[in-house]
Write a protein that binds this DNA or RNA. Structure first.
Length: 576
DNA sequence: CTAGGGTTAG
């Protein structure tokens, strides 16, 4: 009976709130009789559980009686194996504060957690403790240390620990191998590979992923063909290599060739199609998956959000929640969902999402926070955006760009420029999106010369302006009445201008009643988007404002003949 | 217990 209760507790996907309720029930019920050790054994044999639920069991154990070092060790290992690295580490620290002598299981798992999260301070302090406890002779602990230092990109220390190991196994060798590849030293890695006494598939795959990341596809394929031992991960590494370097067709042909695939395989392909904008192919593969997991949904939802199909993203998210799929979203899901809401200007959804995050007990991470910064800024709540920005653990180029654009569209050009300066001081390389925000700031305030300077400085930063950047510049020059300069800029474009560019010029011409460039701009807009009535109206207005009534009438008649109705005004701040 | 292949925001 007790076991049954526990089992249903663990196999359900629980929210924090539900888990808390059950937690309380268990505390006052008969589960008090269960021995911690028994519960741990049971947990380790169960494969279908929710990690959140496990955390609560751990707390329950703590309430029942003082758990021993073994129980703590099991818990740390469990969390580390389920991706809950921060929790694993903090549990390890707690265990030590209680004066318990950590097991090698606990130490190696805690080290693994630090390695995965890049927890440098934590990892090094565990290393120091290991010295004190004198458990340095355990292969698992030493290998975990080697891996920690390779992941921290400290190859000198990694090598020192490795060389001092009295006993090494394949895992130790593979760790040092991946360290050399992380340092970009493929030759050294190949040399080490020959030294490994008993190589396994992972050894080969590690080198293969090295070739994949170097970008030499021919060498990668050659190595793959020569590998004496291949498994599913080898194939996945191969197609992931092609995807990363934009060769989606090659990836697909190997995908089709595979006699066996797993979710990793499918997700690599879905993400690959997403990156090159082929939403249709991505969805086709997604539909063919038989057991879609959380990461598959995340990949597909992100695919929609990143390819401007926000409504589809929200639709799929809704399906995930309601259609009995039985998968709980995580922070990754929500980051994409927030992005979709932002594209739709859906503040209502945004605040709903925030309460949803609280309900599920999902930890706010930088990805989600950055998405929220963008959402709040676009809805005019710049203060909220700022406070989220200041709360970020690491401010990277994406966060800065979101904040800069946020300031720009809220008329805070000075703030945007200050942020950009701070970003440069922090040695963060600006990219295309950063400059979109910055140029928008200049555009908003009409600072033509400064904007021009900024635009020209892009190439000094190794960034080539995109069509969108030209569009903003045309808008900036045009609004200032410098229509000829704007036209010259368009003529100098190395790529074909889209309607955003010509439309910006047309709009500027209607602002300044300029027929000469207005006609040229309108002509291009008509060709590119013959079905959009707005361009005809703009040109007709220009004609009318300079008294060329017959031309205006001719254009309006032309519109009627083409059955172009005026598109009703639509604003992104308005909910659909 | 320690190693390779999957999703994340502008």
């Amino acid at each position: 009976m007790l076991v049954h209760t526990l089992k249903s507790f663990l196999s359900n996907q629980l929210t924090i709130k539900q888990a808390k309720q059950i937690h309380a029930q268990i505390l006052i019920s008969s589960l008090n009789h269960l021995q911690p050790l028994f519960v741990h054994r049971f947990l380790l044999s169960t494969s279908n559980y929710s990690t959140i639920a496990y955390l609560y069991v751990q707390q329950i154990l703590y309430h029942l009686q003082k758990p021993d070092a073994f129980s703590w060790g099991c818990t740390v290992r469990f969390l580390s194996q389920h991706g809950q690295f921060e929790e694993a580490f903090s549990l390890y620290v707690k265990m030590q504060k209680l004066g318990l002598y950590p097991t090698t299981h606990a130490i190696s798992s805690a080290l693994r957690s630090c390695a995965r999260t890049g927890g440098k301070m934590g990892g090094i302090s565990i290393h120091a403790q290991v010295h004190r406890y004198g458990v340095c002779n355990c292969v698992f602990v030493q290998t975990a240390l080697v891996d920690l230092y390779t992941k921290l990109a400290d190859m000198d220390t990694a090598k020192r620990v490795f060389d001092e190991m009295p006993e090494k196994n394949v895992v130790s060798w593979n760790s040092i191998l991946s360290g050399h590849l992380k340092a970009g030293n493929l030759l050294e890695a190949r040399r080490v590979l020959d030294e490994i006494p008993k190589k396994n598939a992972i050894s080969w795959n590690t080198i293969l992923s090295g070739y994949a990341k170097m970008g030499n596809m021919d060498q990668m394929l050659l190595f793959f063909q020569q590998m004496p031992e291949k498994n599913l991960a080898s194939w996945n590494t191969l197609i992931s290599g092609y995807v990363e370097h934009g060769e989606i067709e090659s990836a697909r042909s190997f995908f089709d060739m595979m006699h066996q695939r797993n979710n990793v395989t499918w997700i690599i392909m879905i993400a690959g199609y997403s990156k090159c904008g082929d939403v249709k192919s991505a969805r086709e593969l997604f539909d063919k998956m038989r057991k879609k997991d959380l990461l598959a949904f995340n990949a597909m939802i992100s695919c929609y959000a990143q390819n401007s199909q926000a409504k589809e993203a929200l639709k799929l998210f809704d399906e995930m929640l309601t259609a009995g799929v039985g998968i709980q979203p995580d922070g990754v899901t929500l980051a994409s969902v927030i992005s979709a809401c932002s594209q739709l200007g859906e503040l209502r959804f945004g605040s709903w999402i925030e309460s949803y995050i609280n309900k599920l007990g999902i930890q706010m991470d930088d990805h989600m926070a950055t998405a929220l910064i963008d959402l709040y800024a676009k809805c005019g709540n710049i203060d909220k955006a700022y406070s989220l920005f200041h709360g970020l653990r690491k401010k990277d180029v994406v966060a800065y760009s979101a904040m800069i654009l946020g300031c720009a569209i809220n008329g805070k050009a000075v703030d945007a420029i200050t942020l950009f300066q701070r970003m440069v001081d922090a040695h963060i390389q600006p990219n295309l999106a950063t400059f979109s925000g910055l140029l928008t700031a200049y555009n908003h305030t009409g600072l033509v010369e400064e904007g021009y300077q900024c635009f020209n400085s892009m190439k000094d930063n190794g960034v080539v302006p995109s069509t969108d950047h030209y569009a903003i510049m045309v808008g900036l020059l045009g609004r200032a009445g410098r229509l000829e300069d704007a036209y010259k800029l368009i003529k100098s474009m190395p790529m074909k201008p889209h309607t955003g560019v010509w439309g910006a010029l047309l709009l500027a011409c209607s602002l300044h009643d300029n027929v000469e460039f207005g006609e040229i701009a309108a002509q291009h807009c008509f060709e590119l988007e013959p079905g959009t009535a707005g361009y005809y109206s703009l040109l007709a207005n220009i004609y009318a404002s300079v008294g060329r009534w017959s031309d205006a009438t001719r254009l309006r008649k032309n519109m009627e003949r083409k059955k172009l109705a005026k598109v009703p005004g639509c604003s992104w701040t308005e909910s659909a």
